[in-house]
Simulated assay, not measured.
Amino acid sequence: MNDAFFASHIRTIADWPQPGVQFRDITPLLRDGAAFRRLIDAFAERYADSHIDAVVGIDARGFIIGAALAYRLGCGFIPVRKAGKLPFTTMQESYALEYGEASIEVHTDAALPGEHVLIIDDLIATGGTLLAAVNLMTRLGARIIEAAAVVDLPELGGSARLAEAGLPAFTLLHY
């Protein structure tokens, strides 16, 4: 895996969505077909020998990576959405962002007790979104294999929070 390759496809947008935030945009990585394939291949190689029943993708960029990875691994895909976006009975979890608060939810039948799931998103910032997804999956009885993301922003403390919670995490890049 070549970190410089992936890093060359990440765009930094200063002061978005608010002053002081350095937004790491993965859309150029997704836009480049060869780079996107390499991204999915890198994750698929890591999890090829894992017993994963479903990949849990977090709204919205985690959907893109998660669905492609689930296809590649031959397992199911579970969408974790922003509140109010799912049509069936849901469970909800609130969390803090580095610049606000939010809630995510999942269908109450999304994962079965004992199923092995991988949770994936585009980046780890404060860790709030991933920890909220972990809480949802745990409430459903799923077993978390790992949390994964393209980018880790360690100075925002998310990867440390995940480690403190005993959740193994994997990222391709650290800023």
Rank of each mutant, 00 (worst) to 15 (best):
18 Q>K: 05
90 T>L: 01
102 A>S: 15
96 A>M: 11
57 G>I: 12
153 L>E: 02
46 R>K: 10
165 A>H: 06
89 T>A: 15
52 I>C: 04
143 R>N: 08
84 G>H: 07
99 Y>D: 09
151 V>C: 13
12 T>M: 03
43 F>Q: 04
21 V>L: 13
46 R>D: 07
100 G>V: 11
133 A>V: 12
4 A>H: 01
44 A>Y: 14
98 E>S: 14
119 I>W: 02
171 T>W: 04
144 I>G: 10
13 I>V: 14
141 G>Y: 06
83 A>C: 07
41 D>T: 15
69 L>Q: 08
84 G>M: 05
6 F>P: 14
63 F>G: 02
9 H>T: 07
162 L>Y: 04
115 E>Q: 15
12 T>L: 07
9 H>A: 10
158 G>H: 02
92 Q>A: 13
75 C>H: 01
62 G>L: 08
72 R>F: 02
110 A>G: 05
156 L>M: 11
73 L>H: 05
78 I>K: 01
89 T>V: 07
41 D>R: 13
6 F>R: 06
56 V>L: 02
160 A>P: 03
175 Y>T: 13
117 V>L: 01
67 A>N: 04
52 I>F: 00
83 A>H: 09
50 S>D: 13
30 L>S: 05
56 V>Y: 00
5 F>N: 00
165 A>L: 07
89 T>N: 03
17 P>N: 00
90 T>V: 09
153 L>Q: 02
95 Y>D: 10
36 F>V: 04
32 D>S: 10
3 D>T: 14
37 R>T: 15
61 R>P: 05
88 F>A: 12
9 H>N: 10
148 A>T: 02
42 A>V: 05
150 V>R: 03
147 A>Y: 01
106 V>S: 15
117 V>H: 00
61 R>N: 13
28 P>R: 04
13 I>N: 00
157 G>V: 00
161 R>P: 02
9 H>R: 07
114 G>A: 10
139 R>C: 08
83 A>D: 15
23 F>V: 15
26 I>N: 10
163 A>P: 04
119 I>E: 08
23 F>E: 12
